[in-house]
Design a protein around this nucleic acid. Sequence first.
DNA 1: GTCTATATCTGGATAGAC
DNA 2: GTCTATCCAGATATAGAC
Lengths: 190, 190
Amino acid sequence: MYSAAMSTADRLVESTRELLWERGYVGTSPKAILERAAAGQGSMYHHFKGKQDLALAAIRRTADEMTATAESVLSRPGTPYERIEAYLLRERDVLRGCPVGRLTMDPDVIASDALRAPVDATIARIRQRLADVVEEGRQQGQFAADLDAEEIASAVVATVQGGYVLARASGSPAAFDAGVRGLLALLRPA
Amino acid sequence: MYSAAMSTADRLVESTRELLWERGYVGTSPKAILERAAAGQGSMYHHFKGKQDLALAAIRRTADEMTATAESVLSRPGTPYERIEAYLLRERDVLRGCPVGRLTMDPDVIASDALRAPVDATIARIRQRLADVVEEGRQQGQFAADLDAEEIASAVVATVQGGYVLARASGSPAAFDAGVRGLLALLRPA
DNA sequence: GTCTATATCTGGATAGAC
DNA sequence: GTCTATCCAGATATAGAC
């Protein structure tokens, strides 16, 4: 199921990442994790304190990966508008939803400061990075001078997160694309 | 806990609606529903076939209520922009999230066509109603002629749904408001 | 219609052998 | 480090009494 070179601890984290993405925290049981990782109970409780501790390791890894992907796309060459466009149009597994954002709908994640922290940090960092790009475009005159960069960045992130909701509700990625195109049309420089 | 005039079946549905909102489908147990409704096992299995059947009744009721609220706000007097603004700014329990949209992150809801159907129908209907308003504004010249009404409507709904994600991640409704203000700034007629 | 009793399975964790 | 055995509570449902 995983590369033979992967340690048991790593297999446990990877299985947990997948299951958190597919089923969320409350929907993921230790048993399911162990089966997917082909590991026994003993291994899990040797490497991690329990379900929450393992989930925290998994969430951190996913959060770091997503932050890196976003930073990378937004640092590519191009005008501010083009970079935001690239962020919005980057390839996504739309129907699976956002592996970080979906955790905000999980009651046990929201109830735990430790589990929520990496989720909050990831979204805040991407939003800030987007705000920097918007501000740059504003200074250059590509965007209207009276726009608030932080607010536009929030709208961009929200459109992405909400796009997943639309897509999953309708069972089709088209709904995500429609929202993104709508936002880009409003943002497009004249 | 509920009005004494409320039937056992109604109490069960209301309890389920609350719990689905707070914890989602996978996070809600029949036991928790029964405790909140002050009902016994027998009542639940007499009135409903099981957890899924009860959840379906609860989701339908919530979906109908949300559709009615949206239609009502969007039908108020005012220019198209003002009506969209009213929809975006209407009072919301932001940190609790959207009782319909949150269900799209629930694996068991998405896996069941029966449970997903009312979620899909609600979002599609609100989006269509918004598209009609946008189209009206476009015809009147309040919005740019080259905008696609359906796409703008998708962006509006996505911003709301994604706004809940931002708010819950940060633990503050301010993040929702920022996204909404950003979108309104982009949409605002000159 | 509602109650209690019961059944079976899973959730989440511990204990101790190897 | 990993395994198996075991634990107790909860999830979901059925049976049958009242």
